[in-house]
């Protein structure tokens, strides 16, 4: 996937990195690269794939296909001297594919909730997407998880607009204050900024978690490793019938 230098920053749900080393400690080594898993969610046709493609390859395809299954792309981003590798996941939005989409939420570090400013329904459904994400991502700190609300297609004529900035801001206030930005994948407005905000949001979230974590660190270390389950206590139910 990436070089050995990459440290998984993912999985805010789990505070311990591979081998039992706290992620926070690993991240202190600034020569390393942090891999962040970013999931883009939203109704069909709001421009999820276009946002991803604009950000990753600075390219916009007016006639791009709708996504089938799951796709992802990687892109490096440098912020404050630190390099982040964003692994951006783009999924098919239709309800029918829910069961094959939601497993990919697991381990996300940031979630972009997207709608199109000319599509009122897509804005209404943002709450649904937020809920779906929290249900399946197994995020423990749901209330403070780094969400970014993205209103795409900001390039449209003003008379076609169905969702105002004010409405979006109200939604943010009522839903844990995620960052909010309007973008246009078509004319490139704010797209990179949206992903930068995502990383910054994650950084803040992590710092908060680190502080939280450090107060707990002693406790955690004193926790015994998980006990092995002996065969005698967990029989294989498949083999017992009598």
């Amino acid at each position: 996937m990436s070089s050995n230098n990459v440290v998984l920053g993912r999985g805010s749900g789990s505070r311990i990195g591979p081998g039992g080393t706290p992620i926070a400690q690993k991240r202190l080594n600034t020569s390393k690269n942090v891999l962040l898993k970013v999931v883009i969610l939203g109704n069909g046709g709001v421009g999820k794939s276009c946002l991803m493609n604009r950000f990753v390859s600075n390219h916009f395809d007016q006639h791009s296909f709708h996504t089938i299954g799951v796709e992802f792309l990687n892109k490096d981003l440098e912020i404050n001297g630190e390099t982040y590798t964003l692994q951006i996941w783009d999924t098919a939005g239709q309800e029918r594919f829910k069961s094959l989409r939601t497993p990919f939420y697991r381990g996300s570090d940031v979630c972009l909730l997207t709608y199109a400013v000319n599509d009122k329904n897509s804005f209404k459904d943002v709450s649904m997407w937020c809920k779906e994400f929290l249900t399946y991502a197994d995020v423990k700190e749901g209330a403070t998880f780094p969400f970014i609300l993205v209103g795409n297609k900001a390039d449209i004529a003003e008379e076609d607009r169905q969702v105002s900035k004010e409405e979006a801001q109200v939604w943010c206030k009522e839903n844990g204050n995620p960052s909010f930005i309007e973008t246009s994948a078509k004319d490139a407005t704010n797209v990179e900024l949206a992903f930068r905000m995502a990383v910054e949001r994650w950084t803040k979230f992590e710092e908060k978690m680190d502080r939280h974590y450090e107060t707990e660190v002693v406790d955690l270390r004193s926790v015994k490793p998980p006990e092995r389950v002996s065969c005698c206590f967990s029989a294989n139910p498949a083999l017992s019938e009598e």
Partner: peptide
């Protein structure tokens, strides 16, 4: 014992988790 025991580091591997959920 060996069959039932799962090493702790598995739990940290999100990719593994995604695949499991899938």
């Amino acid at each position: 014992d060996a069959l039932l025991y799962r090493p702790a580091e598995d739990d940290e591997d999100d990719e593994n988790h995604v695949a499991e959920l899938l």
